Computed example of a mutant assay.
Amino acid sequence: MCTRISSRCVIFTLYPLTLISIICNIVLFFPDGDLKYAKDGHITEEVKYMGGLVGGGIMVLLPALYIHKTGTQGCCGNRCKMLLSIALFAEGGAGALYSFIVAGLGLQNGPLCKVILVWSTPFKNSGHSLLTYLAFGLTCTEPNNIVLFNIVLFATLLATSSLQMILCAIQIINGLFGCFCGAR
């Protein structure tokens, strides 16, 4: 059985997921499509952690690029390369996990927004979920639609990082199979 086909499926699925993660994280820096919030430091704290850019982006992209390169050398290379791919995809899984945790915190804590005259995180430690506030219509006065903006982008990061973790786990299993069973 060739592990090459499985590796290709995994990496070609990881590429768009990493791109989505990177784009979501970058877009989160510009609420309402305006640069002034980033300039003034009025950005949600979890955005600054760059879970989508670093964790779900770069940390997942590196092992995918490695497997893509070694896969062109004849079915995943040798057993040492497969062992290295296991370590790299464990690192990629850790990056996806980091992105997942940051996105979850972003959804749990809610956005930094202006409520009347004060910049705060009104949903943090309130005992209510962000979705509850969205349903009840509690709105931040600035930036426009920041609650929905954060929900959509952090939920997208949560979904992509979940898929990335699953794909990294699949590739780790694939690497173990290729390394220890000598599959080509």
Results as ranks from 00 to 15, higher is better:
residue 86 I to K: 08
residue 54 V to A: 05
residue 60 V to P: 06
residue 52 G to V: 03
residue 53 L to R: 04
residue 63 P to I: 03
residue 53 L to V: 04
residue 56 G to T: 04
residue 56 G to K: 01
residue 69 K to F: 07
residue 45 E to G: 04
residue 67 I to A: 15
residue 60 V to I: 08
residue 37 Y to W: 03
residue 29 F to P: 08
residue 59 M to F: 06
residue 31 P to L: 09
residue 86 I to A: 13
residue 25 N to K: 02
residue 58 I to G: 13
residue 31 P to A: 14
residue 28 L to C: 11
residue 82 M to N: 11
residue 33 G to L: 03
residue 68 H to W: 08
residue 48 K to N: 15
residue 58 I to F: 12
residue 75 C to I: 04
residue 75 C to P: 05
residue 60 V to E: 15
residue 44 T to Q: 12
residue 80 C to N: 14
residue 67 I to T: 14
residue 30 F to I: 02
residue 40 D to Y: 09
residue 32 D to M: 11
residue 24 C to V: 12
residue 79 R to A: 14
residue 74 G to F: 00
residue 60 V to K: 07
residue 51 G to A: 05
residue 52 G to R: 07
residue 83 L to V: 10
residue 74 G to P: 01
residue 48 K to S: 15
residue 39 K to N: 10
residue 39 K to Q: 10
residue 40 D to E: 14
residue 41 G to I: 02
residue 41 G to E: 08
residue 66 Y to R: 00
residue 82 M to G: 07
residue 84 L to M: 08
residue 28 L to Q: 14
residue 71 G to M: 00
residue 47 V to R: 01
residue 58 I to W: 08
residue 40 D to A: 15
residue 40 D to K: 15
residue 73 Q to P: 09
residue 53 L to P: 03
residue 82 M to D: 13
residue 62 L to G: 05
residue 36 K to Q: 13
residue 31 P to F: 09
residue 65 L to K: 00
residue 67 I to V: 15
residue 50 M to W: 02
residue 67 I to P: 01
residue 37 Y to V: 04
residue 39 K to H: 06
residue 42 H to T: 10
residue 46 E to V: 04
residue 34 D to A: 10
residue 64 A to I: 01
residue 31 P to Q: 14
residue 54 V to W: 05
residue 82 M to Q: 13
residue 81 K to T: 13
residue 66 Y to N: 01
residue 74 G to W: 00
residue 70 T to M: 02
residue 51 G to Y: 04
residue 83 L to K: 11
residue 45 E to F: 02
residue 72 T to V: 07
residue 61 L to T: 03
residue 56 G to M: 02
residue 67 I to Y: 10
residue 54 V to F: 07
residue 57 G to K: 08
residue 80 C to I: 09
residue 44 T to F: 01
residue 23 I to G: 15
residue 26 I to K: 07
residue 86 I to N: 11
residue 59 M to I: 04
residue 64 A to C: 02
residue 41 G to W: 01
residue 31 P to V: 12
residue 61 L to G: 08
residue 47 V to N: 10
residue 58 I to R: 06
residue 43 I to G: 14
residue 44 T to S: 15
residue 50 M to V: 11
residue 58 I to N: 12
residue 41 G to V: 03
residue 62 L to S: 09
residue 64 A to F: 00
residue 39 K to P: 06
residue 74 G to I: 00
residue 33 G to H: 04
residue 73 Q to V: 09
residue 80 C to R: 09
residue 63 P to D: 11
residue 58 I to K: 05
residue 83 L to E: 12
residue 30 F to R: 05
residue 43 I to W: 02
residue 60 V to N: 15
residue 45 E to R: 07
residue 42 H to V: 10
residue 28 L to S: 12
residue 43 I to Q: 13
residue 71 G to K: 00
residue 28 L to I: 08
residue 80 C to W: 10
residue 34 D to N: 12
residue 30 F to K: 05
residue 68 H to N: 09
residue 67 I to K: 09
residue 68 H to Q: 10
residue 55 G to K: 05
residue 35 L to W: 07
residue 82 M to I: 04
residue 64 A to G: 03
